[in-house]
Amino acid sequence: MSEDLSERIGVIYEAYYDDIYHFLLYFTGRQEDAEDMVQEVFSRLLRILPKYDGRVAMKTWLFSIAKHIAIDHYRKQKWQRLFSNNWLSIMKSKEGLPESEFEAKEEVQRIKRALQKIKPHLRIIVILRYIKEYSVKETAEVLEIPETKVRVDCHRGLKALQNILGESAEEGIANGFAR
């Protein structure tokens, strides 16, 4: 049985590690946190794996655990990145980059920061739907919510992002560094 359990968890780990890692990376915005959390996801899975009856898809099960861990993490952190910025890396990367490329990179940084500011349940939906590009049906299955709720929350999530991005642009980069 030991070999069986080890083998099963090993196979699942290889099959889903990257998926879960990326989901948690987009959620936290921090590679170290995502790596720690993905370990916690598989560790929790291990405890219930002997009871797994295949009724729910493994991917759904894993995302459900990851979602809980992500929200726990959010609650623990309570970090308000009011002035959060990444000025060191951005300033450094500006040198030697064409202006257009620099601006594109900065846009991605802005959206990453904005993503970290929206409510965790909206963030999860936005990640699955627009970054991981799951269909509405897949997102609904993974999160075990109705498709209508996925659509509504997607809309809310995008609206929240638009507001944050609009505000930051109006304030001339609210995080305080002026380029």
Binding site: Y17, D18, Y21, H22, L25, Y26, Q31, E35, V38, A104, K105, E107, V108, R110, I111, K112, L115, V126, Y130, I131, K132, E133, L158, L161, Q162, N163, L165, G166, A169
Partner: peptide
């Protein structure tokens, strides 16, 4: 407000910018 499509495009770009495991 920024265009919704534009926001979605930017979100998709996050995938390319993220470090692999």
């Amino acid at each position: 407000l920024l265009d919704e499509e534009y926001v979605i495009q930017m979100l998709r770009q996050i995938k390319q910018e993220s470090p692999p495991p």
